[in-house]
Design a protein around this nucleic acid. Structure first.
Lengths: 303, 303
DNA sequence: AGAATTAATAGCTTCAGGTTATCAATGCCC
DNA sequence: GGGCATTGATAACCTGAAGCTATTAATTCT
């Protein structure tokens, strides 16, 4: 196998066209350089240098090889530099998994501050259902996940609770409850709520509320995305519950629906940040958690 | 200094996510791989792998570094391949110096055959005056030169005579000699010939002819390129001598001038191929000479 | 609880690659 | 042209990086 030392010797001799000066620059003895070159020539079965006793020149192959050698050495130096740079906290690429019902409405609040405080941080974002995110985290395909109710009893994970996200009542325009500016859970008695098919921590608080308030899940309809849920409400199909960050980002401005906060005990979903306990970057990840907390909008309940 | 072995170990562990299997693939023992990785981590001051006793995962830096490592290893393999390939005769890049008055008219005859027989050969061509070509050859900036009268007494050079290139008489259309289909040197008695300012082996045979035939150099005009010489003749300024390869390529088809061969003893310039004696590629260069000889057009006198 | 698996550690060995000293060839200079 | 200086190669020796085997420690699975 060719070694980097060989490449280094060749590149330096190619630069200086002089064994002794090359050796000097490499902090080696001249015979050491000779040996490296000779060895390389034997391994490749090719003469790299044209030797007069008095002078050294490159053969055409030598030129080509020396050029490639220089490029390789540059790349190795880059690699080392990159690795050393990475001791800067929160630099490089972080693979973050996040719920589809959370990411697009939470992260925009964070990006500005992240850019400002950790300009070298790049996020690779992945939206998947909670169970798949946790599996990918465990498997090593993700570094961090933002999910509801991360498993706190899992020895392999570190879980940091970030906040609780309230659910808001969303009503068709002419709905009888739309007249009130805020609703008590009991106001929903008798309602049939359209709930999300996928979980994402939204369905269970919804069902709990139904039970507590004397409402029920709509028997005929379930939605598969927050946007379609909103549109179903807009067409008058019924009322629903939507998470606060989504409401803030997408629903408040929609003139086709009425959005009302729920009074305590309002249903909420708990959002956590989780990572593998064995990672070497727990400190950084805590910093990441802190950053999220510091930039949470007012609509969520801080932990 | 990072070593290629380290990069190789990292890349393989990154592939397998398993020290023992990586060691197997590398034909090493597992502790050897551990040691290489540990050493690399220490040198870079960075954790590259996330180790559970049971499992290995890459840290984000580890991913980045492993990716770069793979690229570097590929480049090294390429370098080795390139070097080994270069044992194919006449492959790679050859730096050839050639006279400005020769290259554009000789080389087109060669290129087809070169492409066919040595498809991996690339020519870097450089046109300079003879003395500069020889200097650059000696200095190692060129591998081969095509010049007139290469110095055969120079111990540092190998010189192969290729051919003699006759000079043809070139006359204005109405010239008294244009009536003849070929000229004896003596026919030129009394003529005033425009000769080239730069040497290129054309001026001296021209002067010799003048002396032998009783002609003389035109006192007022000298040309600095073959094309301008031809144009000067076309405007009726006088007669001149032009080398056969140029005549064949550029002058025969020009309706503004008359071109006539000269009978023996016709003036010629001797064209040689030369290289540094110390090169390792004499065999290939002889092959190159042979290739030129085999593809010479009929207008030159083969050696 | 015990078997199995995995990466790390310990102790030992070997050889790649370093050193200094010297040689042989070449060019320079008076 | 003979002596001197310079240069890359060679010789002989030395050191430590890197490999191996055997073992340990930690963890998971049975």
């Amino acid at each position: 196998m060719t070694t980097l030392r060989q490449l280094q010797c060749l590149a330096t001799v190619a630069d200086t066209l002089h064994f002794r000066r090359a050796a000097e620059r490499l902090n080696l003895s001249q015979p050491a350089v000779s040996a490296q070159i000779a060895q390389m020539e034997e391994q490749l079965g090719v003469l790299l240098l044209e030797r007069t006793r008095r002078r050294v020149l490159l053969t055409p192959v030598g030129r080509e090889v020396a050029e490639r050698a220089r490029a390789i050495l540059r790349d190795v130096a880059d690699l080392e530099e990159t690795a050393r740079q990475s001791t800067i906290p929160l630099s490089g690429t972080l693979r973050v998994g996040v719920l589809r019902t959370l990411g697009p409405y939470l992260l925009p609040h964070m990006l500005g501050a992240m850019r400002a405080r950790f300009p070298d941080l790049k996020l690779y974002l992945r939206e998947e259902p909670r169970s798949q995110l946790l599996a990918e985290l465990a498997h090593g395909d993700l570094d961090l996940v933002l999910v509801h109710d991360a498993p706190k009893d899992d020895d392999h994970l570190t879980v940091v609770p970030l906040f609780r996200e309230p659910l808001w009542a969303v009503l068709p325009l002419g709905h009888r409850l739309a007249a009130k500016t805020s609703l008590a859970p009991a106001d929903l008695a008798g309602e049939r709520l359209i709930l999300l098919e996928l979980g994402d921590g939204l369905r269970d608080p919804g069902l709990d509320l139904c039970r507590a308030a004397g409402a029920s899940e709509h028997p005929d309809f379930r939605a598969t995305s927050l946007d379609s849920l909103r549109q179903m409400v807009a067409t008058g199909l019924g009322a629903t519950l939507l998470p606060a960050l989504y409401v803030e980002a997408e629903a408040l401005a929609d003139p086709q629906i009425a959005v009302r906060p729920l009074q305590a005990p309002a249903p909420t979903r708990a959002i956590d940040l989780a990572w593998r306990r064995t990672t070497s970057r727990s400190d950084e990840f805590r910093l990441f958690a802190r950053l999220i907390e510091e930039n949470l909008p007012a609509v969520v309940e801080r932990g």
